[in-house]
Amino acid sequence: MSSDHTRADETDSIDDTDEPLLQVRDLEKYYPITGGLLKKQIGEVKAVDGVSFDVRRGETFAIVGESGCGKTTLGKTIARLHAPTGGSIRFDGRDISALSERDLKPVRREIQVVYQDPTSSLNPRKRIKDIVAEPLVVHDIGTKAERRERVAELLERVDLPEDFLYRYPNELSGGQKQRVAIARALTLNPSLLVLDEPTSALDVSVQAKVIALLEELQAELDLSYLMITHDLSLTKNIADRIGVMYLGKLMEKAPAETLFDAPQNPYTEQLLSAIPIVEESEAAFKPERISIRGETPDPSDPPSGCPFHPRCHRAVDDCSRVEPELVDVGTDHVSRCLLHDEDESEM
């Protein structure tokens, strides 16, 4: 397995000119809203609305946002559990956005998802060994003995004792179940893992260890992560780059450090400001306290202009009329806000 040669990559950064593993361009996932007896379409929810970003090889790209912002839909669309309604998803140089289920099968070996709630993502009627071996069976890989060996090896890799093989999920703790889910995702040696809130169902003392495991695996197996989460503090610790989503749109995208040191978008500022810190020492890393108002509006009826304007502490008159574009505000740093345009013109 590809474990050793990647070690070095950790230190010399990933700026070799090779193409990013995943390139998402203007991705759209609209859901129709139907009504009436005839199920006529009366509107649509733009769950993902023109999102573009790259996931580079070996990096962790985090999508952050609150409930209803479309981050989970985004992750599942990229894993092609949903078909996008627009835009492209280039994975390893190939557009997978329009592939049929049959053509997707080889792609599925490369992109795997780890879900938020391991209780729901593991079939309660199957033993751990069958859950972890399922990808091998589906793809018809290996003999029975080889499969068994691979499963034992994976279980060891996620630090679970071998005797868990014969247990059912409900005999395991939440953290153990999530390790099984991770093992299943690794079975086919994928290169990209979509981590959909992988630790938010776990207690913090368990979360810490699962995060440590994910970091270890990334280094050893040369994995790229697309991590979807609402926990900004967590992303600061583990993500290389971060995209902030609001109502289906990417509001800001920047390297993790930049985002926390110099957030450009008012929404990012509010998110940072709202983080409940645990230790006094964290306060230094938070922006001035901002008085926050309102909640995410109904995604089927988003506000005009900038989607965030009704809650924005910096909103100006134009915000309700003009829809801002993503503009460059620094190296590898884009943000969507009308104020940036003004800044630019002033400069």
């Binding site: 559990l81 997707l104 795997q112 879900y115 993502s121 593991l122 079939n123 589906v138 889910a181 299943r184």
Partner: peptide
């Protein structure tokens, strides 16, 4: 609606399976 069904789809399992 359980996620293990979706997970199975994500692995590439057929509808029948």
């Amino acid at each position: 609606e359980e996620q293990f069904v979706e997970a199975s789809r994500g692995i590439g399992a057929s509808r029948i399976r």
